[in-house]
Design a protein around this nucleic acid. Structure first.
Length: 280
RNA sequence: UUCACAAGAUA
């Protein structure tokens, strides 16, 4: 069963749900004992493809087989609902989860907080976060990053920085995701040169700026129409061994197009294709 | 062996 579960997971990750379900049938035919992990893995695959109905059907099926859904199961389904912006239904599932005597974990909170934030209900997200603070659940970087991203997108950098200080003071390490959100927020205010300083701060924290951080900065310069600065960042990236990816190129090409320089845009498109990245 | 967070364009 463990081996088959791992295989199913691999197929789901590859987006090959049909094969994964086929494998499930094979397991049944061979009389292999299915477990929570088998079902959770499949439910995760369905939810990632946005096939929520399938996910809920699988949950029914597991119950029929006498396998009791656990917190993972709920987290997956709640996540699926959140991704569709169905926060009211997500809240109902959250309540059902507790009614069934299951204890929400850090993932449950993380998914819900992120769902609220992405549905433009930051205050609700923040309230859940405060509830989380009062629990005996250990906090981690992800929940902080979620809120930091939300406040940064809103241009509320004061609150974003406050959370950043707060996580540090609790010994929770900022990550690349923390910094890319902060960079993106400061860039959104047009302070791209200031945002660039975060690269050094990251290194002081023992983090190596990754392609996401650099791309956020490039995007900032593009929005300001400072296309000359884009080359600087690209050089800094390559001297640090970081390769631009498809999103980086998309940002640059879009920037040149919007600044009316189609020749440069075409150059970067060519460069991207030469590197084996297919445009979309 | 299964769950959450960061950067882009899109009529």
């Amino acid at each position: 069963t463990v081996t088959s579960n791992a295989l199913i997971h691999g197929l789901c990750e590859a987006g090959n749900m049909l094969e994964a379900v086929r494998l499930l049938k094979v397991m049944l035919e061979r009389g292999l004992q299915l477990d929570k992990i088998t079902y959770n893995t499949l439910i995760s695959g369905c939810c990632k493809e946005g096939k929520l109905e399938e996910g809920f059907k699988l949950r029914e099926e597991m119950v029929k087989r006498g396998i009791v859904p656990d917190t993972f199961t709920y987290n997956l389904l709640i996540h699926g609902l959140c991704n569709k912006g169905k926060m009211d239904e997500a809240v109902m599932l959250w309540n059902e989860c507790r009614r069934n005597g299951l204890v929400p974990n850090i993932y449950t909170y993380g998914v819900m907080i992120d769902g609220f934030c992405k549905a433009d209900k930051i205050e609700e997200g923040k309230n859940l976060f405060n509830e989380l603070l009062s629990q005996k659940i250990e906090l981690n970087s992800v929940v902080y990053n979620t809120l930091i991203r939300a406040y940064s997108r809103n241009g509320n950098m004061a609150e974003a920085f406050r959370l950043h200080d707060d996580m540090r003071s609790k010994g929770i390490p900022p990550t690349c995701a923390t910094y890319s959100s902060l960079i993106n927020g400061v860039c959104g205010l047009g302070q791209v040169d200031d945002a660039k300083c975060f690269l050094d701060e990251m290194r002081k924290d023992g983090l190596l700026p990754n392609v996401v951080c650099y791309t956020a900065l490039i995007g900032g310069y593009c929005k300001l129409g400072q296309m000359d600065k884009v080359g600087d960042i690209l050089r800094e990236m390559s001297s640090n061994g970081i390769q631009p990816n498809k999103i980086t190129y998309t940002v640059i090409i879009d920037g040149y197009c919007k600044s009316g320089d189609m020749k440069e845009a075409a150059k970067f498109l060519d460069e991207m294709v030469e590197k084996g990245i297919s445009p979309d």
